[in-house]
Design a protein around this nucleic acid. Structure first.
Lengths: 134, 134, 134, 134
DNA sequence: GTGGTCTAGACCACG
DNA sequence: GTGGTCTAGACCACC
Protein backbone atom coordinates (compact mmCIF):
# COMPACT_ATOMS: atom_id res chain seq x y z
CA UNK A 1 0.00 0.00 0.00
CA UNK A 2 1.27 3.35 -1.07
CA UNK A 3 1.94 6.15 1.33
CA UNK A 4 -0.43 8.49 -0.50
CA UNK A 5 -3.34 6.13 -0.10
CA UNK A 6 -3.13 6.60 3.62
CA UNK A 7 -3.49 10.36 3.36
CA UNK A 8 -6.41 11.22 5.56
CA UNK A 9 -8.14 14.49 4.98
CA UNK A 10 -10.68 16.09 7.23
CA UNK A 11 -13.24 18.32 5.62
CA UNK A 12 -14.15 20.08 8.84
CA UNK A 13 -13.09 23.53 7.68
CA UNK A 14 -10.46 23.80 10.38
CA UNK A 15 -7.72 23.70 7.83
CA UNK A 16 -7.93 24.12 4.06
CA UNK A 17 -7.46 20.91 2.13
CA UNK A 18 -4.40 22.08 0.24
CA UNK A 19 -2.78 22.88 3.58
CA UNK A 20 -3.57 19.42 4.92
CA UNK A 21 -1.91 17.92 1.87
CA UNK A 22 1.29 19.90 2.29
CA UNK A 23 1.33 18.98 5.96
CA UNK A 24 1.02 15.27 5.27
CA UNK A 25 3.81 15.45 2.73
CA UNK A 26 6.04 17.46 5.04
CA UNK A 27 5.52 15.04 7.89
CA UNK A 28 6.15 11.99 5.73
CA UNK A 29 9.31 13.66 4.46
CA UNK A 30 10.44 14.49 7.98
CA UNK A 31 9.77 10.95 9.14
CA UNK A 32 11.89 9.66 6.28
CA UNK A 33 9.04 7.93 4.49
CA UNK A 34 9.80 10.03 1.43
CA UNK A 35 13.41 10.06 0.34
CA UNK A 36 15.17 13.11 -1.10
CA UNK A 37 14.82 13.13 -4.89
CA UNK A 38 11.87 10.78 -4.82
CA UNK A 39 9.03 11.36 -7.25
CA UNK A 40 5.61 12.10 -5.87
CA UNK A 41 2.32 11.29 -7.61
CA UNK A 42 1.30 13.50 -10.51
CA UNK A 43 -1.36 16.05 -9.81
CA UNK A 44 -3.96 14.00 -11.60
CA UNK A 45 -2.95 10.78 -9.88
CA UNK A 46 -3.15 12.21 -6.39
CA UNK A 47 -6.36 14.09 -7.06
CA UNK A 48 -7.94 10.83 -8.21
CA UNK A 49 -6.56 8.94 -5.22
CA UNK A 50 -7.72 11.31 -2.50
CA UNK A 51 -10.75 12.52 -4.44
CA UNK A 52 -10.19 16.22 -4.49
CA UNK A 53 -10.05 18.56 -7.43
CA UNK A 54 -6.85 18.74 -9.46
CA UNK A 55 -6.64 22.46 -8.76
CA UNK A 56 -6.52 21.77 -5.05
CA UNK A 57 -3.63 19.35 -5.41
CA UNK A 58 -2.01 21.79 -7.79
CA UNK A 59 -2.12 24.50 -5.19
CA UNK A 60 -0.70 22.21 -2.52
CA UNK A 61 2.20 21.33 -4.80
CA UNK A 62 2.76 24.99 -5.64
CA UNK A 63 3.08 25.87 -1.98
CA UNK A 64 5.58 23.09 -1.40
CA UNK A 65 7.51 24.21 -4.46
CA UNK A 66 7.62 27.77 -3.16
CA UNK A 67 8.97 26.43 0.14
CA UNK A 68 11.72 24.60 -1.71
CA UNK A 69 10.40 21.24 -0.61
CA UNK A 70 9.69 19.90 -4.07
CA UNK A 71 10.48 20.89 -7.65
CA UNK A 72 8.71 20.27 -10.92
CA UNK A 73 10.38 18.88 -13.98
CA UNK A 74 8.38 19.89 -17.01
CA UNK A 75 6.27 17.10 -18.32
CA UNK A 76 7.74 14.64 -15.86
CA UNK A 77 6.10 15.45 -12.59
CA UNK A 78 7.19 16.65 -9.18
CA UNK A 79 10.18 15.45 -7.22
CA UNK A 80 11.23 16.06 -3.66
CA UNK A 81 14.35 18.10 -3.27
CA UNK A 82 17.68 16.30 -3.36
CA UNK A 83 18.95 18.59 -0.65
CA UNK A 84 19.29 16.33 2.37
CA UNK A 85 19.56 19.32 4.66
CA UNK A 86 15.96 20.11 3.80
CA UNK A 87 14.55 17.26 5.86
CA UNK A 88 16.28 18.40 9.03
CA UNK A 89 15.42 22.03 8.28
CA UNK A 90 11.79 21.12 7.73
CA UNK A 91 11.64 19.12 10.93
CA UNK A 92 13.13 21.97 12.91
CA UNK A 93 10.77 24.53 11.37
CA UNK A 94 7.68 22.45 12.05
CA UNK A 95 8.79 21.55 15.56
CA UNK A 96 9.69 25.13 16.43
CA UNK A 97 6.34 26.41 15.23
CA UNK A 98 4.54 23.91 17.40
CA UNK A 99 6.73 24.64 20.39
CA UNK A 100 6.31 28.39 20.13
CA UNK A 101 2.56 28.10 19.72
CA UNK A 102 2.21 25.67 22.60
CA UNK A 103 4.48 27.44 25.06
CA UNK A 104 2.97 30.82 24.17
CA UNK A 105 -0.54 29.60 24.85
CA UNK A 106 0.39 27.90 28.13
CA UNK A 107 2.21 30.95 29.41
CA UNK A 108 -0.76 33.13 28.48
CA UNK A 109 -2.72 30.86 30.80
CA UNK A 110 -0.38 31.91 33.58
CA UNK A 111 1.70 28.74 33.84
CA UNK A 112 5.39 28.87 34.68
CA UNK A 113 7.79 26.96 32.46
CA UNK A 114 8.22 24.20 35.02
CA UNK A 115 4.46 23.80 35.21
CA UNK A 116 4.22 23.53 31.44
CA UNK A 117 6.69 20.64 31.43
CA UNK A 118 4.81 19.02 34.28
CA UNK A 119 1.49 19.32 32.43
CA UNK A 120 3.02 17.76 29.36
CA UNK A 121 4.53 14.78 31.14
CA UNK A 122 1.36 14.08 33.07
CA UNK A 123 -0.59 14.35 29.81
CA UNK A 124 1.45 11.79 27.90
CA UNK A 125 1.54 9.47 30.90
CA UNK A 126 -2.18 9.82 31.35
CA UNK A 127 -2.71 8.82 27.76
CA UNK A 128 -0.42 5.87 28.19
CA UNK A 129 -2.41 4.58 31.17
CA UNK A 130 -5.63 5.09 29.22
CA UNK A 131 -4.26 2.92 26.48
CA UNK A 132 -3.25 0.26 28.99
CA UNK A 133 -6.68 0.35 30.65
CA UNK A 134 -8.74 0.16 27.49
CA UNK B 1 -4.26 51.55 32.08
CA UNK B 2 -7.10 49.16 31.60
CA UNK B 3 -6.66 45.53 30.82
CA UNK B 4 -8.67 45.83 27.61
CA UNK B 5 -6.42 48.46 26.24
CA UNK B 6 -3.63 45.95 26.22
CA UNK B 7 -5.55 43.58 24.01
CA UNK B 8 -3.29 42.96 21.08
CA UNK B 9 -4.93 41.75 17.91
CA UNK B 10 -3.20 40.42 14.86
CA UNK B 11 -4.90 40.90 11.54
CA UNK B 12 -2.89 38.16 9.89
CA UNK B 13 -5.80 35.89 9.01
CA UNK B 14 -4.53 33.10 11.20
CA UNK B 15 -7.36 33.47 13.64
CA UNK B 16 -10.61 35.40 13.29
CA UNK B 17 -10.66 38.58 15.31
CA UNK B 18 -13.72 37.61 17.35
CA UNK B 19 -11.88 34.46 18.36
CA UNK B 20 -8.83 36.43 19.38
CA UNK B 21 -11.02 38.57 21.61
CA UNK B 22 -12.64 35.66 23.37
CA UNK B 23 -9.21 34.11 23.85
CA UNK B 24 -7.81 37.22 25.45
CA UNK B 25 -10.77 37.38 27.83
CA UNK B 26 -10.50 33.71 28.69
CA UNK B 27 -6.82 33.97 29.43
CA UNK B 28 -7.19 37.06 31.57
CA UNK B 29 -9.96 35.28 33.45
CA UNK B 30 -7.84 32.17 33.92
CA UNK B 31 -4.92 34.27 35.13
CA UNK B 32 -7.18 35.92 37.67
CA UNK B 33 -6.94 39.36 36.14
CA UNK B 34 -10.67 39.35 35.74
CA UNK B 35 -12.58 38.39 38.87
CA UNK B 36 -15.79 36.37 38.86
CA UNK B 37 -18.75 38.72 38.65
CA UNK B 38 -16.67 41.58 37.29
CA UNK B 39 -18.17 43.84 34.67
CA UNK B 40 -16.58 44.01 31.23
CA UNK B 41 -16.80 46.92 28.77
CA UNK B 42 -19.90 47.39 26.71
CA UNK B 43 -19.76 46.32 23.10
CA UNK B 44 -19.46 49.91 21.88
CA UNK B 45 -16.78 50.76 24.46
CA UNK B 46 -14.60 47.82 23.56
CA UNK B 47 -15.05 48.20 19.82
CA UNK B 48 -13.97 51.83 20.13
CA UNK B 49 -11.03 50.92 22.33
CA UNK B 50 -9.56 48.18 20.18
CA UNK B 51 -10.81 49.66 16.90
CA UNK B 52 -12.77 46.82 15.46
CA UNK B 53 -16.27 46.62 14.10
CA UNK B 54 -19.02 46.43 16.73
CA UNK B 55 -20.35 43.33 14.99
CA UNK B 56 -17.08 41.62 15.73
CA UNK B 57 -17.19 42.40 19.44
CA UNK B 58 -20.83 41.45 19.42
CA UNK B 59 -20.02 38.03 18.10
CA UNK B 60 -17.19 37.56 20.59
CA UNK B 61 -19.53 38.32 23.47
CA UNK B 62 -22.15 35.98 22.05
CA UNK B 63 -19.69 33.12 21.97
CA UNK B 64 -18.56 33.77 25.52
CA UNK B 65 -22.17 33.95 26.65
CA UNK B 66 -22.90 30.68 24.92
CA UNK B 67 -19.93 29.11 26.73
CA UNK B 68 -21.27 30.33 30.05
CA UNK B 69 -18.25 32.55 30.57
CA UNK B 70 -20.18 35.80 30.74
CA UNK B 71 -23.80 36.82 31.18
CA UNK B 72 -25.73 39.96 30.32
CA UNK B 73 -27.93 41.88 32.67
CA UNK B 74 -30.33 43.69 30.41
CA UNK B 75 -29.47 47.33 30.10
CA UNK B 76 -26.54 47.01 32.47
CA UNK B 77 -23.90 45.34 30.35
CA UNK B 78 -22.02 42.07 30.51
CA UNK B 79 -20.59 40.46 33.62
CA UNK B 80 -18.27 37.53 34.04
CA UNK B 81 -19.82 34.51 35.65
CA UNK B 82 -19.83 34.30 39.43
CA UNK B 83 -19.23 30.58 39.20
CA UNK B 84 -15.73 30.14 40.60
CA UNK B 85 -15.50 26.65 39.15
CA UNK B 86 -15.59 28.24 35.73
CA UNK B 87 -12.04 29.52 35.93
CA UNK B 88 -10.56 26.12 36.63
CA UNK B 89 -12.77 24.53 33.99
CA UNK B 90 -11.72 27.11 31.42
CA UNK B 91 -8.07 26.67 32.24
CA UNK B 92 -8.34 22.92 31.86
CA UNK B 93 -10.19 23.17 28.55
CA UNK B 94 -7.69 25.58 27.03
CA UNK B 95 -4.70 23.65 28.34
CA UNK B 96 -6.04 20.33 27.09
CA UNK B 97 -6.68 21.73 23.63
CA UNK B 98 -3.13 23.02 23.44
CA UNK B 99 -1.67 19.80 24.75
CA UNK B 100 -3.58 17.62 22.34
CA UNK B 101 -2.68 19.81 19.39
CA UNK B 102 0.97 20.02 20.36
CA UNK B 103 1.50 16.36 21.14
CA UNK B 104 -0.37 15.30 18.03
CA UNK B 105 1.78 17.44 15.79
CA UNK B 106 5.05 16.35 17.39
CA UNK B 107 4.12 12.68 17.12
CA UNK B 108 3.23 13.19 13.48
CA UNK B 109 6.79 14.36 13.07
CA UNK B 110 7.93 10.97 14.29
CA UNK B 111 8.97 11.90 17.83
CA UNK B 112 8.48 9.56 20.75
CA UNK B 113 6.84 10.94 23.87
CA UNK B 114 10.13 11.12 25.71
CA UNK B 115 11.62 13.11 22.87
CA UNK B 116 8.71 15.53 22.93
CA UNK B 117 9.35 16.27 26.60
CA UNK B 118 13.04 16.67 25.88
CA UNK B 119 12.36 19.10 23.04
CA UNK B 120 10.11 21.15 25.27
CA UNK B 121 12.56 21.42 28.15
CA UNK B 122 15.44 22.34 25.85
CA UNK B 123 13.20 24.93 24.20
CA UNK B 124 12.22 26.73 27.37
CA UNK B 125 15.79 26.55 28.66
CA UNK B 126 17.09 27.90 25.37
CA UNK B 127 14.71 30.81 25.56
CA UNK B 128 15.75 31.50 29.14
CA UNK B 129 19.42 31.70 28.18
CA UNK B 130 18.53 33.98 25.29
CA UNK B 131 16.79 36.32 27.68
CA UNK B 132 19.77 36.31 30.01
CA UNK B 133 22.15 37.03 27.17
CA UNK B 134 20.22 39.90 25.62
CA UNK C 1 -9.04 58.38 -14.21
CA UNK C 2 -7.90 55.71 -11.85
CA UNK C 3 -4.56 54.03 -12.08
CA UNK C 4 -6.12 50.60 -12.36
CA UNK C 5 -8.13 51.55 -15.40
CA UNK C 6 -4.92 52.06 -17.29
CA UNK C 7 -3.72 48.54 -16.57
CA UNK C 8 -3.00 47.05 -19.95
CA UNK C 9 -2.91 43.31 -20.25
CA UNK C 10 -1.67 41.36 -23.19
CA UNK C 11 -3.18 37.97 -23.75
CA UNK C 12 -0.39 36.75 -25.96
CA UNK C 13 0.69 33.90 -23.70
CA UNK C 14 4.10 35.38 -23.16
CA UNK C 15 3.35 36.01 -19.55
CA UNK C 16 0.48 34.70 -17.42
CA UNK C 17 -2.15 37.30 -16.64
CA UNK C 18 -1.71 37.11 -12.89
CA UNK C 19 1.99 37.84 -13.39
CA UNK C 20 1.23 40.85 -15.54
CA UNK C 21 -1.02 42.18 -12.81
CA UNK C 22 1.61 41.87 -10.10
CA UNK C 23 4.13 43.52 -12.41
CA UNK C 24 1.91 46.49 -13.09
CA UNK C 25 1.28 46.94 -9.39
CA UNK C 26 4.96 46.60 -8.53
CA UNK C 27 5.96 49.16 -11.13
CA UNK C 28 3.29 51.64 -10.08
CA UNK C 29 4.44 51.19 -6.50
CA UNK C 30 8.07 51.70 -7.46
CA UNK C 31 7.19 54.80 -9.46
CA UNK C 32 5.41 56.19 -6.42
CA UNK C 33 1.96 56.13 -8.00
CA UNK C 34 0.78 53.92 -5.17
CA UNK C 35 1.60 55.16 -1.70
CA UNK C 36 2.56 52.88 1.20
CA UNK C 37 -0.55 51.91 3.15
CA UNK C 38 -2.85 52.73 0.26
CA UNK C 39 -5.82 50.51 -0.41
CA UNK C 40 -6.02 48.72 -3.71
CA UNK C 41 -9.23 47.66 -5.45
CA UNK C 42 -11.03 44.68 -4.06
CA UNK C 43 -10.66 41.45 -5.98
CA UNK C 44 -14.13 41.79 -7.42
CA UNK C 45 -13.66 45.42 -8.36
CA UNK C 46 -10.43 44.86 -10.23
CA UNK C 47 -11.65 41.71 -11.92
CA UNK C 48 -14.64 43.67 -13.23
CA UNK C 49 -12.46 46.58 -14.33
CA UNK C 50 -9.90 44.62 -16.26
CA UNK C 51 -12.30 41.86 -17.23
CA UNK C 52 -10.54 38.82 -15.94
CA UNK C 53 -11.81 36.17 -13.60
CA UNK C 54 -11.83 36.87 -9.87
CA UNK C 55 -9.62 33.85 -9.30
CA UNK C 56 -6.96 35.32 -11.53
CA UNK C 57 -6.91 38.58 -9.59
CA UNK C 58 -6.99 36.58 -6.40
CA UNK C 59 -3.88 34.73 -7.40
CA UNK C 60 -2.09 37.94 -8.35
CA UNK C 61 -2.90 39.41 -4.94
CA UNK C 62 -1.77 36.22 -3.20
CA UNK C 63 1.62 36.40 -4.88
CA UNK C 64 2.05 40.00 -3.88
CA UNK C 65 1.02 39.17 -0.34
CA UNK C 66 3.57 36.37 -0.20
CA UNK C 67 6.22 38.82 -1.36
CA UNK C 68 5.28 41.17 1.45
CA UNK C 69 4.13 43.85 -0.97
CA UNK C 70 0.53 43.95 0.20
CA UNK C 71 -1.48 42.61 3.09
CA UNK C 72 -5.12 41.70 3.50
CA UNK C 73 -7.32 42.96 6.29
CA UNK C 74 -10.20 40.57 6.71
CA UNK C 75 -13.39 41.86 5.20
CA UNK C 76 -11.78 45.18 4.38
CA UNK C 77 -9.64 44.49 1.35
CA UNK C 78 -5.98 44.63 0.48
CA UNK C 79 -3.56 47.38 1.42
CA UNK C 80 -0.04 48.07 0.28
CA UNK C 81 2.57 47.66 2.97
CA UNK C 82 3.27 50.64 5.21
CA UNK C 83 6.94 49.75 5.13
CA UNK C 84 8.52 52.56 3.14
CA UNK C 85 11.68 50.53 2.71
CA UNK C 86 9.67 48.14 0.58
CA UNK C 87 9.44 50.49 -2.39
CA UNK C 88 13.20 50.92 -2.63
CA UNK C 89 13.71 47.21 -2.03
CA UNK C 90 11.23 46.37 -4.76
CA UNK C 91 12.84 48.78 -7.20
CA UNK C 92 16.26 47.30 -6.52
CA UNK C 93 15.02 43.73 -6.89
CA UNK C 94 13.27 44.41 -10.18
CA UNK C 95 16.17 46.42 -11.56
CA UNK C 96 18.74 43.83 -10.53
CA UNK C 97 16.78 41.04 -12.17
CA UNK C 98 16.64 42.97 -15.41
CA UNK C 99 20.30 43.89 -15.24
CA UNK C 100 21.45 40.35 -14.56
CA UNK C 101 19.28 38.96 -17.34
CA UNK C 102 20.39 41.57 -19.84
CA UNK C 103 24.09 41.49 -19.06
CA UNK C 104 24.09 37.71 -18.96
CA UNK C 105 22.53 37.47 -22.39
CA UNK C 106 24.84 40.07 -23.94
CA UNK C 107 27.93 38.41 -22.53
CA UNK C 108 26.72 35.07 -23.83
CA UNK C 109 26.73 36.74 -27.23
CA UNK C 110 30.43 37.38 -26.73
CA UNK C 111 30.28 41.10 -25.99
CA UNK C 112 32.69 42.71 -23.53
CA UNK C 113 31.26 44.92 -20.81
CA UNK C 114 32.35 48.08 -22.59
CA UNK C 115 30.61 46.92 -25.74
CA UNK C 116 27.41 46.25 -23.83
CA UNK C 117 27.34 49.81 -22.53
CA UNK C 118 28.05 51.09 -26.03
CA UNK C 119 25.21 49.05 -27.49
CA UNK C 120 22.82 50.39 -24.88
CA UNK C 121 23.71 54.03 -25.40
CA UNK C 122 23.48 53.76 -29.16
CA UNK C 123 20.14 51.99 -28.77
CA UNK C 124 18.51 54.68 -26.64
CA UNK C 125 19.99 57.40 -28.83
CA UNK C 126 18.79 55.65 -31.96
CA UNK C 127 15.29 55.50 -30.53
CA UNK C 128 15.44 59.18 -29.67
CA UNK C 129 16.37 60.11 -33.25
CA UNK C 130 13.61 57.88 -34.55
CA UNK C 131 11.13 59.77 -32.44
CA UNK C 132 12.47 63.08 -33.73
CA UNK C 133 12.34 61.92 -37.34
CA UNK C 134 8.84 60.49 -37.27
CA UNK D 1 35.46 17.98 -24.58
CA UNK D 2 32.81 18.86 -27.08
CA UNK D 3 30.93 22.10 -27.07
CA UNK D 4 27.59 20.31 -26.76
CA UNK D 5 28.62 18.62 -23.59
CA UNK D 6 28.89 21.98 -21.95
CA UNK D 7 25.28 22.81 -22.74
CA UNK D 8 23.75 23.70 -19.42
CA UNK D 9 20.01 23.39 -19.17
CA UNK D 10 17.89 24.66 -16.35
CA UNK D 11 14.70 22.82 -15.62
CA UNK D 12 13.24 25.69 -13.69
CA UNK D 13 10.28 26.33 -15.98
CA UNK D 14 11.44 29.80 -16.88
CA UNK D 15 12.17 28.81 -20.45
CA UNK D 16 11.17 25.67 -22.36
CA UNK D 17 14.03 23.30 -22.86
CA UNK D 18 13.83 23.32 -26.65
CA UNK D 19 14.18 27.10 -26.50
CA UNK D 20 17.22 26.82 -24.25
CA UNK D 21 18.82 24.50 -26.77
CA UNK D 22 18.28 26.81 -29.72
CA UNK D 23 19.61 29.68 -27.63
CA UNK D 24 22.79 27.84 -26.75
CA UNK D 25 23.38 26.99 -30.41
CA UNK D 26 22.68 30.54 -31.52
CA UNK D 27 25.07 31.99 -28.97
CA UNK D 28 27.84 29.56 -29.82
CA UNK D 29 27.33 30.40 -33.47
CA UNK D 30 27.41 34.13 -32.76
CA UNK D 31 30.56 33.75 -30.68
CA UNK D 32 32.20 31.91 -33.56
CA UNK D 33 32.52 28.63 -31.68
CA UNK D 34 30.48 27.00 -34.42
CA UNK D 35 31.70 27.73 -37.93
CA UNK D 36 29.37 28.22 -40.91
CA UNK D 37 28.79 24.87 -42.59
CA UNK D 38 29.84 22.91 -39.50
CA UNK D 39 28.01 19.72 -38.70
CA UNK D 40 26.08 19.46 -35.43
CA UNK D 41 25.20 16.27 -33.56
CA UNK D 42 22.32 14.16 -34.73
CA UNK D 43 19.12 14.39 -32.78
CA UNK D 44 19.76 11.07 -31.04
CA UNK D 45 23.35 11.95 -30.22
CA UNK D 46 22.49 15.26 -28.65
CA UNK D 47 19.47 13.93 -26.78
CA UNK D 48 21.69 11.23 -25.29
CA UNK D 49 24.40 13.71 -24.43
CA UNK D 50 22.29 16.27 -22.65
CA UNK D 51 19.74 13.77 -21.42
CA UNK D 52 16.52 15.16 -22.77
CA UNK D 53 13.76 13.60 -24.80
CA UNK D 54 14.48 13.22 -28.51
CA UNK D 55 11.24 15.04 -29.25
CA UNK D 56 12.64 18.06 -27.46
CA UNK D 57 15.83 18.12 -29.52
CA UNK D 58 13.73 17.47 -32.59
CA UNK D 59 11.68 20.55 -31.95
CA UNK D 60 14.76 22.66 -31.26
CA UNK D 61 16.27 21.64 -34.59
CA UNK D 62 12.98 22.33 -36.36
CA UNK D 63 12.92 25.87 -35.02
CA UNK D 64 16.49 26.49 -36.03
CA UNK D 65 15.81 25.11 -39.48
CA UNK D 66 12.77 27.35 -39.80
CA UNK D 67 14.93 30.33 -38.85
CA UNK D 68 17.44 29.39 -41.53
CA UNK D 69 20.13 28.80 -38.95
CA UNK D 70 20.71 25.16 -39.85
CA UNK D 71 19.83 22.90 -42.71
CA UNK D 72 19.52 19.12 -43.02
CA UNK D 73 21.19 17.03 -45.68
CA UNK D 74 19.02 13.94 -45.89
CA UNK D 75 20.65 11.02 -44.23
CA UNK D 76 23.74 12.98 -43.33
CA UNK D 77 22.58 15.09 -40.41
CA UNK D 78 22.23 18.77 -39.73
CA UNK D 79 24.69 21.48 -40.74
CA UNK D 80 24.89 25.11 -39.84
CA UNK D 81 24.24 27.53 -42.66
CA UNK D 82 27.15 28.53 -44.88
CA UNK D 83 25.72 32.00 -45.12
CA UNK D 84 28.25 34.13 -43.24
CA UNK D 85 25.79 37.01 -43.03
CA UNK D 86 23.70 34.83 -40.77
CA UNK D 87 25.99 35.19 -37.80
CA UNK D 88 25.83 38.98 -37.79
CA UNK D 89 22.08 38.88 -38.38
CA UNK D 90 21.59 36.46 -35.51
CA UNK D 91 23.71 38.55 -33.21
CA UNK D 92 21.74 41.67 -34.04
CA UNK D 93 18.39 39.95 -33.56
CA UNK D 94 19.33 38.52 -30.19
CA UNK D 95 20.92 41.76 -29.01
CA UNK D 96 17.95 43.85 -30.11
CA UNK D 97 15.52 41.60 -28.30
CA UNK D 98 17.52 41.89 -25.11
CA UNK D 99 17.89 45.63 -25.45
CA UNK D 100 14.21 46.22 -26.06
CA UNK D 101 13.20 44.02 -23.15
CA UNK D 102 15.73 45.57 -20.79
CA UNK D 103 15.08 49.20 -21.67
CA UNK D 104 11.33 48.68 -21.59
CA UNK D 105 11.43 47.21 -18.13
CA UNK D 106 13.74 49.87 -16.72
CA UNK D 107 11.60 52.66 -18.13
CA UNK D 108 8.52 51.05 -16.62
CA UNK D 109 10.34 51.41 -13.31
CA UNK D 110 10.41 55.14 -13.90
CA UNK D 111 14.07 55.51 -14.90
CA UNK D 112 15.18 58.01 -17.51
CA UNK D 113 17.45 56.81 -20.30
CA UNK D 114 20.50 58.42 -18.72
CA UNK D 115 19.74 56.66 -15.44
CA UNK D 116 19.46 53.33 -17.23
CA UNK D 117 22.94 53.72 -18.67
CA UNK D 118 24.23 54.76 -15.26
CA UNK D 119 22.69 51.71 -13.61
CA UNK D 120 24.26 49.45 -16.19
CA UNK D 121 27.77 50.87 -15.86
CA UNK D 122 27.65 50.76 -12.07
CA UNK D 123 26.39 47.17 -12.29
CA UNK D 124 29.19 45.88 -14.48
CA UNK D 125 31.77 47.79 -12.44
CA UNK D 126 30.33 46.44 -9.23
CA UNK D 127 30.60 42.91 -10.56
CA UNK D 128 34.17 43.51 -11.68
CA UNK D 129 35.21 44.64 -8.20
CA UNK D 130 33.48 41.62 -6.71
CA UNK D 131 35.52 39.36 -8.96
CA UNK D 132 38.71 41.12 -8.00
CA UNK D 133 37.87 40.86 -4.32
CA UNK D 134 37.02 37.18 -4.33
C1' DG E 1 -19.51 44.04 1.44
C1' DT E 2 -14.74 41.56 1.89
C1' DG E 3 -11.29 37.62 1.21
C1' DG E 4 -10.65 32.39 0.97
C1' DT E 5 -11.45 27.88 -0.71
C1' DC E 6 -13.13 24.44 -3.74
C1' DT E 7 -15.12 22.34 -7.94
C1' DA E 8 -15.72 21.18 -12.79
C1' DG E 9 -14.13 21.76 -16.92
C1' DA E 10 -11.52 23.76 -20.51
C1' DC E 11 -7.22 24.88 -23.17
C1' DC E 12 -2.37 25.28 -23.81
C1' DA E 13 2.69 24.27 -23.96
C1' DC E 14 5.88 20.91 -23.04
C1' DG E 15 8.33 16.18 -23.12
C1' DG F 1 1.35 11.77 -20.43
C1' DT F 2 2.91 15.99 -17.57
C1' DG F 3 2.33 20.79 -15.36
C1' DG F 4 0.24 25.59 -15.88
C1' DT F 5 -3.31 28.85 -16.53
C1' DC F 6 -7.90 30.50 -16.84
C1' DT F 7 -12.99 30.59 -16.39
C1' DA F 8 -17.54 30.28 -14.28
C1' DG F 9 -19.78 29.54 -10.49
C1' DA F 10 -20.50 28.06 -5.93
C1' DC F 11 -20.12 28.29 -0.76
C1' DC F 12 -18.18 29.82 3.46
C1' DA F 13 -16.35 32.77 7.28
C1' DC F 14 -15.64 37.22 8.54
C1' DC F 15 -16.35 42.37 9.21
Amino acid sequence: MQLWERFSLSFDNRMPIYRQITLQFSRAFVRGEIKPGERIPSIRELSALIKVNTNTVQRAYQEMERDGLIGSKRGMGYYFTEDTNMTVKTRRDLALDSLRCFVGEMRALGLADSEIVAELTSFVEGEASNEAGS
